[in-house]
């Protein structure tokens, strides 16, 4: 690839950044307008002090914990719902009535049940991640070609083994779609959860990236800090999505 092509994806962001800097300088002194230069220095301070990586790591831990629990549960429930008609028929109304409830609406419950630490945040994340994973699991298992299941049965393979060797690999592309969507909503909800949990717990300690944002918002009223947090979250989420895609590429060689 030539240098020109390699740089192309960066041209537009750099241009926007320059515009931002110019606009900020033009409307200086209002302090509600963050300036790229300030954001940069703030970013450097937060990274070198280790505060930002620590906060991101804390949030990442919660996201992965919530996601792992939600995904395993969704996998089992979704497969059961899709593979066994009566289970699907009976659980569907329950699932569909919980699905529209925003994860944030569960915050009061989460805080009352789990306090203001990792369990509460992971619970919110798990709740948010559960539904995209469930819906895609159901869809994936249902859309498996009945022909290959019949073929496996005529080879003398038991139903349980078929579930493991035919149904799961067959549903895997959809499971990956579900996982990527679930991780996406997990990140959006961890910020909200930590903002709120942080508000309740007050400042101090590593309450994750959301709490860090809350501290910048409520105590030091520092817009640059908030922007740095946003960029940090964006980068981590991007890295995770790329990781999942790489895993997908590796695990689905027949889809290449």
């Amino acid at each position: 690839m030539s240098l020109h092509l390699r740089l192309r994806p960066f041209i537009l962001p750099l241009l926007l950044l320059a515009l931002w800097q110019i606009a900020a300088m033009a409307y200086a002194q209002t302090s509600r307008m963050p300036v790229p230069g300030d954001v940069l220095t703030m970013g450097w301070t937060l990274v070198s002090s280790g505060e930002l990586p620590l906060a991101l790591l804390q949030s990442l831990k919660r996201v992965l914990l919530g996601f792992a629990c939600a995904a395993s549960l969704a996998l089992v429930v979704g497969t059961a719902m899709a593979a066994f008609e009566p289970i699907g028929r009976n659980l569907d109304p329950i699932v569909e009535s919980f699905r529209p409830i925003a994860p944030i609406a569960l915050l009061p419950l989460a805080i009352l049940w789990f306090g203001t630490g990792t369990p509460a945040a992971a619970f919110i994340v798990g709740y948010a991640a559960f539904f995209p994973m469930l819906v895609n699991t159901i869809h994936g298992v249902r859309s498996i070609d009945q022909g290959v299941i019949r073929a496996a049965r005529t080879l003398g393979v038991s139903r349980f083994t078929i579930l493991r060797t035919v149904v799961l690999p067959g549903a895997l592309p959809n499971l990956f779609v579900g996982a990527r969507l679930a991780l996406g909503v997990a990140w959006t909800s961890i910020i909200a959860a930590e903002l709120a949990v942080g508000a309740k717990a007050g400042g101090g300690g590593s309450g994750g990236i959301g709490q860090m944002m809350f501290v910048f918002y409520a105590y030091s009223v520092d817009l640059s800090g908030i922007i740095v947090c946003m960029i940090g979250v964006g980068l981590v989420a991007l890295i995770i999505d790329r990781g999942v895609r790489a895993l997908e590429f590796w695990m689905l060689p027949w889809k290449r």
């Binding site: 290959v148 080879l155 003398g156 035919v166």
Partner: peptide, 23 residues
């Protein structure tokens, strides 16, 4: 329509019965 397992190679398709059958 052959009903081969799309996610398995030729070898894995052929080996499926001898590998996973109950008997």
């Amino acid at each position: 329509d052959y009903a081969l397992f799309p996610w398995k190679t030729v070898r894995e398709n052929i080996e499926f019965g001898p590998r996973y059958r109950t008997a």
